[in-house]
């Protein structure tokens, strides 16, 4: 009897202690930390247009940067209460795991290996490869490029998988590799290439800057999901960021998201259908 009583007391004490620990953990969520600090710290880069780059006015801007502003708006009702920590692509995961940043939004491709190290938010963009040609050129769209077979030359950024990547869309095309982004555009301009194959976001941005001179062939492949990432093990914070991003893509902040999308990728987004939530269709 006594032993049972003691066991019961221990169990009770343990459960109180554990629930206390759970409370303590909740109290130290990154969410509370950020709210107490009064501004959000976002890790991103500064050398990749249209994602995160410095404009002629030396201000950091881009789609990733706008995501940071959206989350800051959700936190403080002020999109400018955000500090951007400049980091190289290699520093994305270390800066999260060592707590240098609250969140990283830096065109980070979601992969299984990375998801073991950091917690990904819901996606905010789907990247893919596209084909861009000169306006009024010999080929009008993807179907014509494909039909032309080996007569077509495609300029692409140097990469181990570049040849396979192009051949996935244009199996017979000749592939010319260049080691800088400006060189693939030059190849297209000078007529050495009929099309360039590169990220759709880069194509969108380049076409915005050179309005009317280029056309998108209208085919995308090689999908990659871009998501922000936070430290593992803080569900509260992850939930908050997910909510902020979700409402930017389908709720009250949709106009902000759509405006940013139009600015950096040149495409108008139709507003989400009103009525039954689109997520459950």
């Amino acid at each position: 009897m006594n032993a049972i009583l003691r066991a019961g007391a221990i169990a009770l004490a343990t459960s109180i202690f554990l629930s206390g620990a759970a409370f303590a953990q909740q109290a130290t969520s990154r969410l509370d930390e950020v709210l107490a600090r009064g501004h959000l710290i976002v890790g991103t880069g500064s050398t990749n247009a249209p994602w995160h780059f410095k404009g002629a006015d030396d201000k950091l801007q881009g789609f990733d940067v706008d995501m940071g502003h959206i989350i800051a708006k959700a936190l403080f009702n002020d999109p400018d209460k955000v500090e951007f920590v400049n980091q190289s692509s290699d520093a994305r995961i270390p800066n999260i795991t060592t707590g240098k940043v609250d969140i990283t939004c830096q065109f980070m491709t979601v992969t299984g290996a990375r998801a073991q190290q950091v917690a990904f938010t819901i996606p905010y963009y789907r990247e893919g490869v596209g084909l861009m040609m000169k306006a009024g050129g010999a080929y009008k769209d993807y179907a014509e490029l494909k039909a032309a077979g080996s007569k077509v030359t495609v300029a692409v950024l140097q990469n181990v998988y570049a040849e396979d990547m192009v051949h996935a869309a244009l199996p017979q095309a000749k592939v010319d590799q260049y080691d800088a982004q400006d060189l693939i555009y030059q190849a297209l301009n000078s007529g050495r290439a009929d099309a360039v194959a590169t990220d759709q976001s880069s194509i969108g941005w380049f076409m915005i800057q050179n309005a009317g001179r280029y056309v998108d062939a209208g085919y995308g492949w090689g999908p990659q999901t871009y998501a922000c990432a936070v430290k593992r093990g803080d569900q509260d914070w992850l939930n908050f960021v997910n909510t902020a991003l979700h409402e930017a893509m389908s709720g009250v902040e949709f106009d902000t998201y759509a405006k940013s999308f139009k600015t950096w990728f040149g495409k108008d987004l139709p507003p989400p259908q009103i009525g039954f939530p689109v997520e459950f269709k």
Binding site: S46, K54, Q181, Y185
Partner: peptide, 8 residues
């Protein structure tokens, strides 16, 4: 690098 990413 920041400048180059803007003007290539």
């Amino acid at each position: 690098q920041e400048i180059i990413s803007r003007n290539f």
